[in-house]
């Protein structure tokens, strides 16, 4: 399903002393089946933006189009149930939302809410748990006795159980160790490639963004500054340094090398793969100059 934002404004608590404009004239398009990252500093409107994707927030003005459903400020809650099934959302620190007595019941919560039968939900729980890399043993355990990383996987399984077409993830790897992070990210990428789920990732880890995303939406103070490929965003020094956006470590390293007099023309590397190419080109260039 394609996602389209047209002149979206969002104001928190309008007409009160707490009034706050969180989004200003947001226009964007996210293709079906793509992997899009949303980046920006704290308070730039990332969380507000993603809450529009399943109607938790309705635009104060403008419209959001998801598939063939148009969300405006006047849409009724009853019209959103179908959308919530199609758009799965994993919030920050999702282990906090676990509530049931067993892992199985927690994963079944979503499917049953959306009208799946008990037996079917049971089967789905098993499958979803497998998808996130946990075996059947976990089904009857209490979610509260699991480790942080396991809890996060169970929460993810709970979202996947509904088989969403669009999966929105708000910092899914925050607070996990290196291996845990990598596994979660790989799993998400796999969902995109194998099940053609549209992935929307909010992240502060620019390495993750550079490694996995195809498209980046850069937000600042509630406005979309730029929507482009990670390569274009991170090599645009004016934008990243003006907004105080970190660049991936490989880019930082490459810049450091250039400062020290390494000769290279072209766009800077943003991840391991492009860094390898970067090094190769430098050495090839060096060889040529030596031969001459």
């Amino acid at each position: 399903m394609e996602i389209l934002f047209k002149n979206v404004d969002y104001i928190y608590q309008p007409n009160s002393p707490f009034q706050f404009k969180a989004l200003t004239d947001v226009n964007l398009k996210i293709e079906s089946g793509s992997f899009t990252a949303i980046i920006g500093k704290t308070g730039s409107g990332k969380s507000t933006l993603i809450r529009h994707l399943n109607g938790l927030l309705k635009p104060s003005s403008g419209e959001v189009k998801i598939g063939n459903l148009t969300i405006t400020s006047s849409i009724k809650e009853s019209q959103l149930s179908d959308l919530r099934r199609k758009v799965g959302m994993l919030f920050q620190f999702p282990e906090q939302q676990l509530f049931a007595d067993t892992v199985e019941h927690d994963i079944e919560f979503g499917p049953i809410n959306f009208g799946t039968t008990k037996e079917k939900a049971k089967k789905i729980a098993r499958e979803s748990l497998k998808k996130v890399g946990l075996n059947d043993e976990f089904l009857n355990r209490s979610p509260l006795e699991l480790s942080g990383g396991q809890m996060r996987r169970v929460a993810l399984a709970g979202v996947l159980a509904v088989k969403p077409d669009i999966l929105v993830l708000d910092e899914p790897t925050a607070g996990l160790d290196f291996i845990g992070k990598k596994e979660i990210m790989k799993l998400i990428k796999k969902l995109q490639l194998e099940e053609h789920t549209t992935i929307i990732l909010v992240s502060n880890s620019m390495e993750d963004v550079a490694d996995y995303a195809e498209e980046v939406i850069l937000l600042s103070k509630g406005k979309v500054i730029k929507q482009a490929s990670p390569n274009k965003i991170f090599s645009n020094k004016e934008i990243t340094s003006a907004l105080g956006i970190e660049t991936p470590q490989t880019t930082v390293l490459a810049e450091f090398l250039l400062e020290r007099g390494v000769d290279f023309k072209g766009s800077l590397p943003i991840n391991e793969k492009s860094f390898n190419n970067f090094l190769k080109k430098i050495f090839e260039e060096k060889k040529k100059t030596r031969i001459l």
Binding site: L56, R84, M89, F91, Q92, Q96, F109
Partner: peptide, 12 residues
């Protein structure tokens, strides 16, 4: 936050 998360999972 929690009610947003549960609403996203179809809580009524």
């Amino acid at each position: 936050t929690i009610s947003d998360a549960q609403k996203a999972r179809g809580s009524s």
